[in-house]
Amino acid sequence: MRAPAASDIAAGEVLLSLENVSLSFGGVRAIRDVSFDIKKGEVRAIIGPNGAGKTSMLNVINGFYQPQQGRITFKGRTRSTMRPYDAARGGIARTFQNVALFKGMSALDNIMAGRTLRMRRGLLWQLLRVGPALKEEIEHRERVEEIIDFLEIQAIRKVLVARLPYGLQKRVELGRALAMEPDLLLLDEPMAGMNLEEKEDMSRFIVDVNEHYGTTIALIEHDMGVVMDLSDRVVVLDHGVKIADATPDEVKRDQNVIDAYLGVAH
């Protein structure tokens, strides 16, 4: 796998910033005036109790939802509205809380689909599948095989993903996101429903992706052990409001966070 497409932002600088973002559905205010940033090269965790607005936050970042208020700046460009495929084009990849794979395709085809944006040859070349089209297909297959090796899913590459167990499906989904060679990788509960061993594997992949390829990662996770070990900085949301934004150690001691998770006596 190649290093992600070079962007002009150096490590440690702000890759994505959200300023005063608010999102509501009718009367329900999912996100209220939240600001935070993600720096290039870091692992940023977004945590909070159920219904805190974490997934909505990711949906705002990659264009599923359009916030009513606020500014989002990604790679130095501020945007008003954006569709998910624009986000993909800009270098944002993501995985879903409930695996969203293409069930009728093999693991290999799913990951190959992740390279759609990087393939160029048009319809007529594809019809003939000779020369440049074949060469392109094979070049991308090589990249995809590197991802398959990295995620240790060689044995299942030709298997329909619908037949795979959940843990492997999660891995294939991560593979599809990696195939896009993103600048920013959004992971929505990558460990949900996994046993300890699977969690360890997944943590290892996340650390490797971050360290070897320098991919910036924003992840939502409920397993606090995982969050504290993996992330550089943590945003805590509760009822759509940001209640803390600090390093894992500081967040652990923050009284607001403890109250949000454990409740307070009234």
């Binding site: 879903f96 759609t116 896009m180």
Partner: peptide
């Protein structure tokens, strides 16, 4: 079997995820 076929099948199987990968 190529890029365009995968694009179609992605749209068939899960249109939201297809958009996420830039289709």
């Amino acid at each position: 079997r190529g890029r365009i076929g995968r694009m179609w099948m992605a749209m068939r199987d899960m249109d939201i995820a297809a958009e996420i990968i830039g289709i």
